[in-house]
Design a protein around this nucleic acid. Structure first.
Lengths: 132, 132
DNA sequence: TAGGACCCTTGAGTGCACTCCAAGCAAGTA
DNA sequence: TACTTGCTTGGAGTGCACTCAAGGGTCCTA
């Protein structure tokens, strides 16, 4: 427990521009994520401004990982919905993540293949015997 | 030299639908590639239909590798132009491929990170202690 | 000579994942 | 009080990489 927290009894809250700075996601994107259901309805200040929690940041970090896997936004929304529905959706979530994992593995091996071709071409160019 | 070739003295030529079958690229995409300069002007039959050569197929295979690296179409076109310009562009081409190679390596390591997160989550779900 | 398969062109349309715009409210500072 | 900064909304716009439509030509077989 930090001093500030003990004093205020309030967990930290972040404005949209703080979250933008921490996550690298634009304010536009953050609002859009909320709108499409990729994250829960964010808490609001008395004047209606968003106040993100640490949990929101953690969720966004995980969503970021899903994004880098190449998972579509539609599938991420599906996943988010399953999480909101509760514990009984665990099997479906695992299935979704396993499917994604398989795709990532396939993608990595595709990239390794392409890497080999690039290496070969670059060696050709570096060597002298340059062709196409 | 195959028998057929010796007899006809003609290298094999492929129609657009043959190329579609061999490469998996749609006819639309093949025509579009030619239009934007991602491949040379394909030879035509006397009636104006495309006749692709083995060289064209090889080029398309290489372009396919570049595509899987995530290189943008604009950069691929740039590369194709450099190839058409001749031997004096070899250094620029190598530079372009090296930049791409670096991006691919970075992408692979991103994907490996994401894979670790997926493994962790899936284990959680499989374990029993399911959370979000 | 008719039918069907196959191909051509230009230009418009699609789906995705943002990204931006306009108009306006609220809080803090000079 | 006036100004600036930061935030709100719904809906429109953007860039990418295709993808399709319309209208027409050519070739082969019956």
């Amino acid at each position: 427990m930090s001093l500030t927290q003990t004093q205020t009894q309030m967990p930290p809250r972040y404005t949209i521009s703080e979250v933008e700075a921490r996550t690298g996601l634009s304010q536009h994107t953050l609002r859009w994520y909320e709108r499409i259901g990729l994250m829960r309805q964010v808490d609001r200040s008395h004047s209606g401004q968003r106040r993100f929690s640490d949990g929101d940041l953690q969720w966004l970090a995980f969503v970021g990982k899903l994004r880098t896997t190449g998972m579509s936004v539609a599938d991420m929304v599906r996943y988010a919905e399953l999480v909101r529905e509760g514990e009984h959706t665990v099997d479906q979530r695992r299935e979704l993540l396993e499917r994604t994992r398989n795709e990532v593995r396939a993608r990595i091996s595709e990239l390794n293949d392409a890497l080999a071709v690039l290496d070969f071409k670059i060696d050709l160019y570096t060597g002298k015997a340059a062709r196409q």
